[in-house]
């Protein structure tokens, strides 16, 4: 039987799909291998970690490494500390940046464009340039060894997040804001009742970014926090790094535990990235 044009097209598609699948599998294995290395190391004994040639799978699966890790330092306390900082930072970033972005996008005022350009230009300054002046500033404020240096800046906006949210607000039709104004709403009310619900996907993005930043922050706490009772998880992990030797198996186990919420969060919020809200005022 002679093959029709459509049959040959279908076969071609099948082959292409198979090739794609194999390539993607290979790629994901490549990207997963460091994670596997972490998991595998976390379950080995210290002797096996150091053995040569290295083993890909642990000879013995030492699950109690995780319990030992958790008990090696007051990780319960560190978790509470980290969670506190992270929540405050996320709340600050989401609310303040959203509010500022609403203003830049929807309230016309003199010098708005110039001001926005100045805000954006702060993105050009590398963080390390301001590190020492900032330290001096916080030291003068008497904020060393407190969480203020870690939390308060989050309530003063960040250029990138403002930019991101402003772009999102630009897609909200002006008429919608004007309609609300006509109905007697203040800008604050409109931001709260219309702005926030309509920019949820962008807010979720900002929340995830700032969660990640705060949760994984090592330099901030290292600089500003000395009291062991104020340590965060990232600082806590340092107990396994001795001056002579590092307990790699415990460090990896601890790192995995600390990493877990971040991974879970990504799974949970993924739909917000995809979904998006139709902003055409209920249009098509």
């Amino acid at each position: 039987m002679k093959q029709s044009y459509f049959d040959s097209m279908k076969n071609r598609e099948k082959v292409l799909k198979a090739v794609n699948f194999i390539l993607l599998c290979f790629g994901s294995l490549l990207f997963l291998s460091p994670l596997w290395w972490m998991i595998s190391t976390s379950l080995k004994t210290m002797k096996e970690v150091m053995s040569f040639p290295p083993t890909f799978f642990p000879k013995e699966w030492n699950w109690d490494n995780y319990i030992k890790t958790w008990e090696a330092a007051p990780f319960d306390l560190y978790t509470i500390n980290t969670v506190t900082i992270t929540i405050l930072v996320v709340v600050g970033q989401v609310l303040v940046n959203s509010f500022v972005a609403y203003g830049f996008a929807k309230i016309p005022f003199k010098g708005r464009e110039v001001l926005f350009a100045i805000v954006l230009s702060t993105m050009m300054i590398p963080g390390f340039v301001t590190l020492i002046p900032q330290y001096v500033l916080f030291a003068n404020l008497g904020w060393l060894n407190t969480y203020y240096p870690l939390v308060v800046p989050a309530f003063f906006g960040s250029a990138f997040n403002i930019f991101l949210l402003r772009q999102f607000y630009m897609t909200v039709p002006n008429e919608m804001i004007e309609a609300a104004r006509m109905e007697g709403a203040s800008h604050f009310y409109i931001w709260r009742k219309i702005g926030i619900p309509l920019t949820k996907p962008a807010l979720a993005t900002v929340a995830i970014f700032s969660f990640n930043g705060a949760w994984n922050d090592f330099l901030g706490p290292l600089l500003y926090v000395n009291d062991e009772n104020l340590y965060t998880l990232q600082l806590g992990l340092q107990v396994f790094k001795g001056e002579m030797s590092t307990q790699w198996n415990y460090l990896m186990a601890g790192s995995l535990i600390v990493l877990l919420p971040v991974i879970l969060l990504f799974f949970f919020f993924q739909k917000y990235f995809i979904k998006g809200i139709n902003l055409q005022s209920g249009g098509k």
Binding site: P173, E175, M176, E178, A179, A180, M182, E183, I194, P197, L198, I277, N278, L279, Q280, S281, G282, G283
Partner: peptide, 14 residues
């Protein structure tokens, strides 16, 4: 105390 109807309706989608 003026109400207005817009061309694109401007309903709040959420």
């Amino acid at each position: 105390n003026i109400s207005m109807v817009f061309q694109n309706y401007a309903l709040y989608p959420h």
